[in-house]
Design a protein around this nucleic acid. Structure first.
Length: 271
DNA sequence: AATAACACCTGTGTGC
DNA sequence: TGCACACAGGTGTTAT
């Protein structure tokens, strides 16, 4: 489900309910997520949540004893519910708070993660090798030009590579390349810095807009209150293979890159 | 070292 | 209506 905007919208939605609140219970109904969910009730119950942060698509819930690391995978979502709200299918984990609210993880495909880290999270192996945040100034044309130097693989695969830049998933990689006029199969190292400047600007713009709109709703994305996002209606290429290009009217092509659907306009996007 | 393929899992839509 | 199959927002691990 979620790319960076959806995770950020979730963070913004849940953090007011979590910060300064005390954890009263942790219930794991099904701990078989991507990795076994550790039993850390002893460590976290009684702790006050200090902050709720995001790094890449990971949500980080800080307490003085340690940080809970949550990833929503392909199908995960977090909602805040009241005590007594009936448990539904795939509601795997509850983090109960002194306020009477419960942070509830639902994840049908269980590609998500719920982990615990007592060290600063930079030390965590999942977070230690991540590239820059796309919305920060460290992600710029000069950086990207350098990171893509000598790379022969397709630019779209590079945009989705967490070592190069985090948070850009299949939807926004397709959209950003469309707006930048770059063919998704272009060898990454061949793109000159001026085109990368345009690409970087488009990535930032698209992600910011998607956050402002409340995230993309494809099938089942909802924010912390269970409301859908409104970005899907603004997608120009993702999910539109065979339909007309919104810019020139030519039919959009669809190919597979790295096993993922890639849609582009063969006229507007060049190698 | 870099790239490509595979793995994890459930739900949904399509075509027969 | 049932069944087989392809496909879906991610990403660490394994193979080439």
């Amino acid at each position: 489900m979620p790319e960076l905007p959806e995770v950020e919208v979730t963070r913004q939605g849940i953090s007011p309910y979590l910060i300064d609140n005390k954890v009263t219970n942790l219930t794991v109904r099904n701990g078989k997520l991507r990795w076994p969910v550790p039993d850390i009730a002893q460590q976290i119950v009684g702790q006050v949540i200090r902050d709720v942060r995001r790094r890449a698509k990971y949500l980080l819930i800080d307490t003085d004893a340690g940080t809970t690391i949550i990833h929503l995978g392909m199908s995960g979502s977090l909602r805040l519910v009241s005590v007594g709200t009936p448990v539904e299918k795939h509601d795997h984990i509850d983090l109960a708070l002194a306020s009477g609210r419960i942070l509830r993880l639902n994840d049908p495909r269980r590609f998500g993660a719920w982990l615990w880290c007592e060290l600063p999270e930079q030390a965590h192996p999942l977070l230690s090798k991540l590239g820059p945040e796309p919305l920060l100034s460290q992600f710029n044309a000069d950086y990207l030009f350098d990171a893509l130097k000598n790379k022969k693989k397709a630019i779209k695969l590079c945009l989705m590579d967490n070592h190069i830049v985090v948070g850009v998933g299949n939807i926004y990689a397709n959209e950003a390349l469309f707006f930048a006029g770059i063919h998704p199969q272009t060898p990454a190292g061949h793109i000159d810095i001026e085109r990368l400047r345009i690409l970087v600007a488009n990535i930032k713009e698209i992600l910011k807009n998607a956050i402002k709109q409340g995230g993309t709703t494809l099938k089942d994305f909802t924010n912390a209150e269970g409301k859908p996002g409104y970005f899907a209606q603004k997608l120009h290429v993702y999910g539109r293979g065979g339909q007309a290009c919104t810019h020139c009217g030519h039919l959009l092509s669809e190919i597979k890159l790295g096993q993922r659907a890639s849609v582009f306009c063969p006229v507007c996007q060049t190698l």
